[in-house]
């Protein structure tokens, strides 16, 4: 009896300490939010996977689902792939690779496959292609929202706007955002300028940008940059004295 009373007393003293300690760690933890908000996971991933997730194997479950998605891709089963990608990104929202791959599968692979699907009418193919591109865009936008500090997803989003939606303004915007983050690719800033140069009505802005890059030195003076710069010099009627020297 005495021992039990002593235990309860010690416990009462220790409990707040324990909780304070654990909470301060929680605050530093990147992934702690996921479980707290995703109890309805069970309906989405099934009983076994759910228990594994609760047991601390969220990342492994995500990987297995991802691999299953990969096989779905090899079978050309787009709806199954989409389901898996949604589950994977929900389980691991902080793994940028999953968002990146999800966006790429939808906007590039699935959309192209839809366009080449001869069993559908041309109108239906176009509509389906458009829908898959939108799905890809949605993945990347959500990926960016979950990982605002990772340049990779901005780059992927920029490519999608550039190659799939022909939206040069948005492409430029996203390349620019990527270029301001640590770990960005060296071509991000140039790409932002190139994309800007295609935007109707923003030629002056684009010219200043490209010229500033040109003036940084040899390293930036790549053929595409020079070509775009020449094009804008013509278009904007820049005086010959300020134009870049001809080779």
């Amino acid at each position: 009896m005495k021992a039990i009373a002593a235990f309860i007393l010690v416990a009462a003293g220790l409990a707040p300490l324990k909780w304070k300690f654990e909470r301060s760690i929680d605050a530093n933890h990147l992934s702690s939010d996921v479980l707290h908000h995703a109890i309805d996971l069970r309906e989405r991933v099934g009983q076994t996977a759910f228990i594994a997730i609760l047991g601390g194997f969220r990342s492994v479950v995500a990987d297995l689902l991802f691999i299953d998605g990969h096989f779905a891709w090899e079978r050309v089963d787009w709806s199954h792939l989409l389901l898996r990608l949604r589950q994977v990104t929900m389980l691991q929202p902080h793994v940028t690779m999953f968002w990146d791959v999800a966006g790429w599968h939808m906007a590039w692979n699935a959309s192209t496959a839809a366009l080449n699907d001869t069993s559908l009418s041309v109108a239906a193919r176009r509509r389906l292609q458009r829908e898959y591109i939108e799905l890809g865009r949605d993945f990347l936008e959500r990926g960016v929202a979950n990982n605002p500090k990772n340049p990779k997803l901005y780059e992927a989003l920029a490519r999608l706007y550039r190659d799939k939606l022909n939206d040069h303004a948005r492409a430029s915007e996203n390349f620019l955002r990527a270029s301001r983050l640590p770990g960005c690719a060296a071509y991000d800033e140039r790409s932002a300028a190139y994309e800007l140069s295609y935007c109707e009505g923003r030629e002056h802005e684009a010219y200043d940008y490209l010229r500033a890059l040109y003036d940084r030195g040899e390293k930036e003076r790549l053929p595409t940059l020079i070509a775009r710069l020449r094009h804008l010099e013509e278009k904007l009627n820049i005086s010959p004295t300020t134009r870049i020297p001809a080779k």
Binding site: I25, S31, S32, G56, H94, V95, M97
Partner: peptide, 20 residues
């Protein structure tokens, strides 16, 4: 909350894999 340890806190694999 008192009896059990917080085991979830020790799963840092997310960060590692995410490259964070």
């Amino acid at each position: 909350a008192f009896i059990f340890p917080d085991l979830q806190a020790f799963n840092l694999s997310d960060q590692v894999i995410g490259g964070v």
